[in-house]
């Protein structure tokens, strides 16, 4: 009796350790595959040149168009979603009372927006662009990606903001600060948390293909205006992988390495910032 109980526990414990190991090795497997395929294709030309002879068939050049395009796109989206998210989070935490129903409704709606898939943001962005008479363009992509990353930013910034002890707002209010003046100082204190939120949002936004598929378009050139189409890294992978030409496929693999490295850097810096933040607090 006791033996079978022990055996059961040991059995499940082994299963648990196996599943932990499986998950870890999958990660290594994915990163390994990407590096194995992409590193040989990665050279200086790849990151410094535009694709020659068309991105789908041309054998020359690199993916500079996608790198620059993604950078432009994500910067624009971060600016837009920051200007909305920061006031929103400060508002629901410091302007609204602590147990405000309005605040919980807003939080709830962002929980749901967080779950809305990127293809829906893409479709909505596209519908919006048709409505406004726009063509696939950098601006369209920026708007769609801004919508996609706003819930991420709001949720993760809100999470750290909620943990802020009441001491600081109280201290500021008792000095006779208005709510607005108070929020500005609090924002300074929350900076590491905000940076973490931005890094998370950038990671999600820069890698998402479904949102930019019909909103930002694709081009061999560098985007030079908001109303021109812009290439992006995820689409550079997606489109060029389907090409029959090996050199073009290599460009896709190289883009995959670049994107993965960006994600790794973002993820680790987000971790660094959030741990630094919690150290300050405890």
């Amino acid at each position: 009796m006791i033996n079978t109980k022990r055996q059961e526990e040991i059995f499940f414990k082994i299963l648990m350790i196996i599943s932990i190991c499986v998950i870890m090795s999958i990660l290594l497997f994915i990163i390994g595959t990407v590096l194995y395929k992409g590193l040989p294709a990665l050279d200086w030309d790849m990151v410094s040149k535009l694709p020659g002879g068309g991105f789908y068939l041309g054998k020359e050049g690199g993916v500079l168009n996608a790198i620059i395009g993604s950078l432009y796109l994500i910067s624009g989206s971060v600016v837009i979603s920051l200007t909305l998210s920061v006031p929103l989070v400060l508002f629901i935490n410091f302007y609204l009372p602590k147990k405000s129903v309005f605040a919980s409704i807003i939080r709830f709606s962002f929980d749901i927006l967080f779950g809305v898939p990127s293809i829906v943001y893409g479709a909505f962005g596209f519908a919006l662009m048709i409505f406004l008479g726009m063509r696939a363009s950098l601006l369209g992509g920026i708007i769609a990606v801004a919508l996609l990353i706003m819930p991420i930013m709001v949720r993760s910034f809100d999470e750290v903001t909620r943990l802020l002890p009441r001491d600081l707002p109280d201290a500021l209010l008792s000095l006779g600060a208005t709510k607005y003046e108070m929020s500005k100082v609090i924002l300074r204190q929350l900076m590491p948390g905000l940076v973490t939120a931005i890094l998370l949002a950038v990671g999600r936004g820069i890698g998402d293909a479904a949102t930019v598929l019909f909103t930002a378009g694709y081009t061999d050139n560098l985007p030079n205006a908001l109303n021109h189409p812009a290439a992006t890294l995820p689409l550079s992978i997606f489109f060029q992988l389907g090409s029959p030409v090996e050199e073009v496929q290599n460009r896709a693999y190289a883009s995959a390495v670049i994107l993965t490295v960006i994600i790794l850097i973002l993820s680790f810096s987000a971790r660094y910032f959030s741990s630094k933040y919690s150290k300050n607090k405890i």
Binding site: I20, I23, G203, A209, I263, S267, R271
Partner: peptide, 28 residues
């Protein structure tokens, strides 16, 4: 220690873009 190693693994898995999963899927 195990939790500390595993947490970033989860972070990274959730950070890897869908298109990379797609590449990995088609390759393996």
């Amino acid at each position: 220690t195990i939790s500390r190693i595993f947490e970033p693994v989860i972070d990274l898995l959730s950070g890897i873009p869908p298109v990379i999963y797609g590449v990995w899927g088609t390759l393996t």
